[in-house]
């Protein structure tokens, strides 16, 4: 299926968010995720199914004012 990952169309085979992140090469470092605009806690990623056309945001700490 194709999802929109951080604004880019991305092909994924994994059925849930946790597996998709692993397959895409996201490590275990500090990350936060949202699916279709809704926050998904780290503990819920493995039980959050993905569907074609889903919008996924993967964010990390960054400098800020």
């Amino acid at each position: 299926m194709r999802i929109e990952l951080n604004g880019l169309l991305t092909e994924v085979a994994a059925a849930n968010l946790g597996d998709a992140l692993t397959a895409l090469g996201y490590g275990s470092s500090a990350l936060a995720t949202a699916l279709n605009g809704v926050f998904v806690p780290a503990a819920a990623r493995a039980t959050t199914p993905l569907h074609d056309g889903d919008r996924v945001e993967v964010l990390a700490p960054m400098q800020g004012g």
Partner: peptide, 22 residues
């Protein structure tokens, strides 16, 4: 100190060490 969140690329290392530094 104030910090933010921005999109992370795969294998980006979680803020590229920025977070542990802070």
């Amino acid at each position: 100190i104030t910090v933010s969140l921005r999109r992370e690329t795969a294998n980006g290392g979680g803020g590229n060490g920025f977070w542990p530094l802070l």
